[in-house]
Amino acid sequence: MSTVQIKTGKGYFITGSIFEAKDNHTVLVISSATGVKQSYYRKFSEFIANNGITVMTFDYSGIGNSLNGPIKRNDVNASDWGATDLEAVMRYAKEHYPGATINLLGHSIGGQLIGLSKSAAEARKIILMAAQTGYWRFWTGFRKYRMWTNWNIGFPMLLYIFGYLPSKKITGMENLPKNVARQWCKWCLDPDYLFGDIPEQDLYFKNISAQLTSFSIADDPFAPVKNVDWITAKYSAARVKRLHLTPADFGMDQIGHFGIFQEKSRANIWELLLKEIER
């Protein structure tokens, strides 16, 4: 693995990692979930690279190794993570691996942000893993009102007190810059999610005509099937394949929102993902 500093279109740098395969005919760019450092995908990336596909991971601005200075001073928003950060990584991959096929894998919000990167339209294959709308009314029962409380009361209060979202204290995930958390809250209160906030000319979902495989997971409380179907449908020009994973089908007790990229899934699920990336 090698580490690279990638300059974005807005002039700031983000940190990426490259897992080099023996040949570079295909490059897979992984766009992370919210508040998840790129190191979380390291074992999976090594597995993919050992099977002949170069992998690039990166930390969004304000996260992990791309946190430059105090987080309170980081002014990027959630849409910057796709339109600026992912876009910069896609451009880096095209420049440094000319002639290679570029594929994309977006986990959770990473799958949403793909549609904000102009260069994503040049990807040959896209994998959406538990990518979803976060609009609070898509949930049911107690969880629906818990979501409403988070977006309307909990997150705004924490942002006012700390000047950023102290996720490490709450969930163990990485802290979020203030404007990322504020924009995320705004999306999750809008039935059109990010489409109600971002101008049409800055949305590239309809430009993407690649083969796209969208996964949902039966025991994933953060990405119910309805939510996954909603965001998948926004890639209206893509050639879509929908797969739904159930733990019992893989001899597992649970998978959840984050289990796919954990070591426990190596023997059961990573081969399936590899085949979809190669397909």
Rank of each mutant, 00 (worst) to 15 (best):
S214W: 05
P221Q: 09
L203A: 06
E174W: 03
P177V: 05
P166L: 08
Y164F: 15
K186S: 15
K241L: 13
S216N: 08
C185R: 00
H244T: 10
P199Y: 06
V225G: 04
K241P: 05
I198M: 00
T213N: 03
V180C: 03
Y204F: 15
W151H: 07
N179G: 09
P224W: 05
I217E: 00
I198F: 02
G163P: 06
F162D: 01
Q183V: 01
G163S: 09
K178H: 11
F162Q: 06
M173V: 04
N207W: 00
K234G: 01
R143S: 12
L189W: 02
L203Q: 15
I170F: 13
G172H: 09
V225W: 04
M173P: 04
N150Q: 13
V228K: 01
E200Q: 13
R242V: 02
K144W: 08
N227H: 13
F205G: 03
I170Y: 11
N207T: 09
S214R: 00
I153L: 15
L212S: 07
L158H: 05
I208V: 09
M173Q: 12
R143D: 10
R143G: 01
S236N: 12
L203E: 02
L189V: 05
T171K: 12
D229P: 04
W184I: 00
P177H: 07
Y145K: 12
P199T: 04
P177K: 03
K234L: 12
P166A: 00
Q183E: 15
R182T: 07
D202P: 01
S216M: 05
I208F: 00
D202Y: 11
L212W: 00
K206T: 11
Y204V: 05
Y235F: 15
Y204H: 15
T140I: 12
I198G: 00
A218I: 05
F155W: 11
L189S: 07
M173S: 10
L189D: 05
I161V: 15
G163M: 08
A210Y: 04
Y164N: 07
P177L: 09
N175A: 08
F162S: 09
A233I: 04
K206H: 14
T171I: 12
V225Y: 06
T140F: 08
H244I: 08
W187S: 02
P177M: 09
D229V: 06
P177S: 11
D229I: 06
M173C: 03
Y204I: 06
R242N: 13
Y235G: 03
Q211A: 11
L194G: 03
C185H: 07
D219H: 10
W187L: 04
A233F: 04
T149V: 10
Y164P: 01
D197A: 14
A238R: 00
D192N: 15
N207D: 15
K144N: 09
I153R: 12
A233N: 14
W230Q: 06
K144C: 13
Q211V: 02
F222S: 11
H244S: 14
Q201F: 10
E174S: 11
S167L: 14
N207Y: 01
F195C: 07
K178C: 01
C188M: 13
D202T: 03
T213L: 02
A237T: 12
Q183I: 02
R182P: 02
F155L: 10
K178M: 10
S236T: 11
V228A: 02
E200N: 10
V240I: 15
W148S: 10
L189N: 10
